[in-house]
């Protein structure tokens, strides 16, 4: 059973993610900006809660594909930041 961050420890979960996000972004935000980010993290947790509520078996694999190969011609030529 997964812990439910939308109830008991919700505030702590939001604060923890907010601190992590701000540390990774590496900048100070004003109060309005901080409110926007906090609100988005709250929403993010609600969505995570919905996704975690879907029963999954141990062998339910993610829908992403990994194909070992010797590389692809032109890889790295796509526009990058």
């Amino acid at each position: 059973m997964l812990a439910d961050e939308t109830s008991g420890d919700r505030e702590m979960a939001v604060d923890t993610r907010l601190q992590l996000a701000l540390a990774r972004a590496g900048r100070q935000l004003d109060d309005d900006q901080r409110r926007i980010v906090r609100s988005r993290i709250e929403r993010q947790l609600e969505m995570a809660h919905l996704v975690r509520a879907v029963p999954l078996a141990h062998d339910d694999e993610p829908a992403h594909e990994f194909s070992p190969s010797h590389g692809l011609a032109g890889a790295g030529e796509t526009p990058r930041l």
Binding site: R17, L18, L20, A21, L22, R24, A25, L29, Q33, I36, V37, R40, I41, Q44, A48, V51, R52, V54, L56, D60, E61, P62, A63, H64
Partner: peptide, 29 residues
């Protein structure tokens, strides 16, 4: 204005949440 702080929140999405969403995606597919 709201885009200037866009995706800062997403920098803190745990890898397990992302992977769980991808596992649910397979169910959805």
């Amino acid at each position: 204005v709201e885009n200037r702080v866009g995706l800062i929140d997403a920098l803190a999405i745990p890898a397990t949440d992302y992977l769980r969403a991808l596992r649910v995606r397979r169910k959805a597919m």
